[in-house]
Design a protein around this nucleic acid. Structure first.
Lengths: 338, 338
DNA sequence: GTGAAAGCGCTAACAC
DNA sequence: GTGTTAGCGCTTTCAC
C-alpha cells in the first residue's frame, strides 16, 4: 500500500512503539522472561503478529554472545562417505532433532589441507558447540578445541588417550566379537574378515572384536583383508581374500556396504552364501535386507546415534550435566547369510 | 602466561591498537579493500597473526547486512531419502563447493507442519540465499520467497507455472524416454515401468518419458506401478507388477534404489535378468555397479548437480547474471541388465 | 515489573 | 590512503 517504506524489516523498536512499551519489555517477552505482566505480553505479541516481526539473529548473537547455532564437522575424508547409509542416517538424526530446537545446524566440510580454517570457524564465535563425525588419525586438533567450546564426537576419536571427551558410539569391539562368535557357533572354523579403514576407530575396533572371538575359540586369525567401507573396497578385499588360495568358510565384513561388493565377487567365483561361505555384516542398512541372500548383520541405531549426539550437545551447551560417554546398543539381526 | 586475561577474544580494536592504525584500516585489510598501503597491510596482518584474531561473524553480519550464509532446505518428506545415494551426493556436492567459499551452509529440515518456521528463518535475515531440494506439491510457499531472497531449486518445483525460478536439473522426461527406447530397440515389446513418487517432479517426469517412448513405438503403455524411490517401494511395486498376471519382458525403473528392491523380487519369482526381464534403472548409483547383473542405467551427475546449485546461488547473491535454468547432461550406461 | 542507557564487534559513509 | 563518526538490532545491568 504505502510504497514509501517498501521492505522495511520490522525491528524490535517498531514492535515496542506499536505495543506502547519499551524495547526492553519486548525483548523480555521475546525471550520468555518470567517477570512481565500478562497485559504487556499480550500487547507485545499482538504487535509482533501485526508487524510480522522476526528477531534478527545477528543482533541477538552479538548482544547475547550466544549463537544458537551448532556446527556439524565432517572431515573431508569422511565426506566421501556421505552416500554411506550409515552416515546419512546419523546426519539425518542430527538434523531432525535439531529442527525441533531453536538451534541452527551449520555443516562444515573440514578440509584436511587447512584445518586452520575449521578451527577458526569453531573458535570464532560462530557456533555454540560442535558435533564431530567419526574420522581419522589427525583428530588431535579437534580435541584441543574441546576446552574452548562444547564438542561431542560421533564415534570415538582415534586418539582417545585422555578419554576426556563427550562421545556417542556403539561398542564396536564387542559387537564385532558377537558377530564373529555367531559364525563360530554355527560351525564355521575358518573365519576371515574384511576390515574397515584402519585409520578410523570403527575399522580398528571391529577388527579387534573379530580377533577376540577367534582367540577365544583358538581358531586361526590370519585371514584379514582391509577395505575402505565402500562396496568397491569390499569387492577388492574379497578378491584378495580368494586370491590367497587359503580356504575359508565364513567372513565377518565390517560394513554392509562392503558386503554388497563382496557378495558379488563371491558369486562371480561360484561361491554360494551361506553354503560355501557364511557372511555377517555390520550396519543393518537397507542393502542387507534386499541382498540375495538377506544379510545377517549387526544393527546399530544410526538415526538414534545422530539424535543422541545432538541431544548431548544441546544439554552440554545448556550446562545440564550429561554422561561423557554414551554407548548405544547394537544387536545381531539373523537373516539368511549364515 | 598471563592468567589475568584468560580467554580474551581479540577484537578488531585490539588489532588496530597493536598495528598502530585505526579500526577502519584493519577492517579494510580484513576485507581486502584495494586502497591500503602495503605497509599498513603488513602491519595489520602481523597484528592479526600475533593476536590470533578471528573476525566476529555476528558483528560483521549486523553491520554489513550480509550473512555469508546459505540455507539448504530439505523438506521433511525428502529428508527421509537422506540415505538415497542420489540425494547424499547432491548434498555432498553442495557442501564441498561451499567449503571452498566463505559461505557457511545451514541445513534446514523443513517441517511440513509449520512451514512458517522455515519461512521466518529464511526471511529473518539469517542467510543470503537458499538452496531448496526437490520436494513435493506444496512448494508454492517457497516460490513466493524467491522475491525476497535468492533461491535456487534442485530439481524443478512441482508447480512450475511461472517457471520464473532458478533451477538446476536434468531432463528427466527425455532421459526416461531414451532409457525406455533402449529397451524397445533391444527387441522388448512389453515394457513396464516402476515409477517414482508422483508428488515429485522426477517421479512424474520419468513416467512421462516412459509413456512417450512407448507412444512413439505404438506399444501399449499400461504396465505401470508406482514406487516411492526406496528399495522397499521398488520391491512392492515389482510384486504388484508380477501379481497382475500380465506378461512383460522389460521394466524401466525410475531409480536404482527401487531397482535394487525389484531385482530381489524378480529373482525370488525365478525370473532372470536380462533373460526373462530386461531392466533399465536411473541414477547410476553404486548399487547399479555391484548388483547381479550390473544395471544398465541412466547416469546423472549428482555431485555436480549439487556443485552447480551452489555456484548458481553464490553468483545470484553476488549479482552476477546466471542462467535461470541449467539442465545437466545425463547418459545411458550400458551394462548387463538388458 | 519496566524503562534508560550502555554496549556487543564490526562496517560504511564521510571528512580529512 | 586513513581516521572519525555513526550506527546495525538486540540484550542487559541498573535504577526506579
Amino acid at each position: 500500500m504505502d510504497d514509501r517504506a517498501p521492505l522495511a524489516v520490522p525491528t524490535l523498536e517498531m514492535v515496542a512503539a506499536l505495543a506502547g512499551v519499551s524495547r526492553s519489555t519486548v525483548s523480555r517477552v521475546v525471550n520468555d522472561s518470567p517477570q512481565v505482566t500478562t497485559e504487556a505480553i499480550d500487547a507485545v505479541n499482538r504487535a509482533i503478529a501485526e508487524l510480522n516481526y522476526v528477531p534478527n539473529r545477528a543482533a541477538r548473537t552479538l548482544a547475547s554472545r550466544k549463537t544458537e547455532a551448532i556446527a556439524l564437522v565432517i572431515p573431508e575424508n569422511t565426506a566421501k562417505f556421505f552416500a554411506d547409509p550409515f552416515f546419512a542416517s546419523v546426519i539425518q538424526g542430527i538434523a531432525m532433532h535439531l529442527s525441533t530446537t531453536d538451534y541452527t545446524l551449520s555443516m562444515l566440510i573440514a578440509a584436511e589441507a587447512d584445518s586452520e580454517k575449521t578451527r577458526r570457524y569453531l573458535q570464532g564465535g560462530n557456533v555454540d558447540g560442535a558435533l564431530i563425525l567419526s574420522h581419522h588419525s589427525d583428530d588431535r586438533s579437534y580435541k584441543s578445541l574441546a576446552s574452548s567450546i562444547p564438542i561431542v564426537f560421533g564415534g570415538r576419536p582415534m586418539s582417545n588417550e585422555g578419554s576426556d571427551n563427550y562421545v556417542v558410539d556403539v561398542d564396536n569391539i564387542e559387537s564385532a566379537r558377537v558377530a564373529t562368535q555367531y559364525l563360530i557357533d554355527h560351525g564355521r572354523t575358518r573365519v576371515a574378515t574384511i576390515a574397515g579403514r584402519q585409520d578410523m576407530a570403527a575399522g580398528l575396533d571391529r577388527l579387534e572384536g573379530w580377533r577376540k572371538a577367534l582367540a577365544g575359540s583358538s581358531l586361526p586369525a590370519d585371514l584379514v583383508e582391509v577395505g575402505d567401507f565402500t562396496p568397491h573396497g569390499g569387492a577388492t578385499a574379497m578378491e584378495k581374500l580368494i586370491a590367497r588360495g587359503q580356504p575359508f568358510d565364513a567372513v565377518f565384513i565390517a560394513s554392509d556396504q562392503m558386503a554388497s561388493g563382496a557378495l558379488g565377487v563371491l558369486r562371480a567365483h561360484g561361491l554360494s552364501v551361506p553354503g560355501d561361505v557364511a557372511i555377517v555384516g555390520f550396519d543393518n542398512d537397507y542393502f542387507s535386507t534386499t541382498s540375495i541372500p538377506p544379510l545377517t548383520t549387526v544393527d546399530q541405531p544410526s538415526v538414534e546415534l545422530g539424535t543422541h549426539m545432538a541431544e548431548v550437545l544441546v544439554r552440554l551447551i545448556g550446562g545440564i550435566p550429561v554422561d561423557k560417554v554414551t554407548i548405544m546398543p547394537t544387536r545381531l539381526i539373523e537373516r539368511e547369510s549364515v
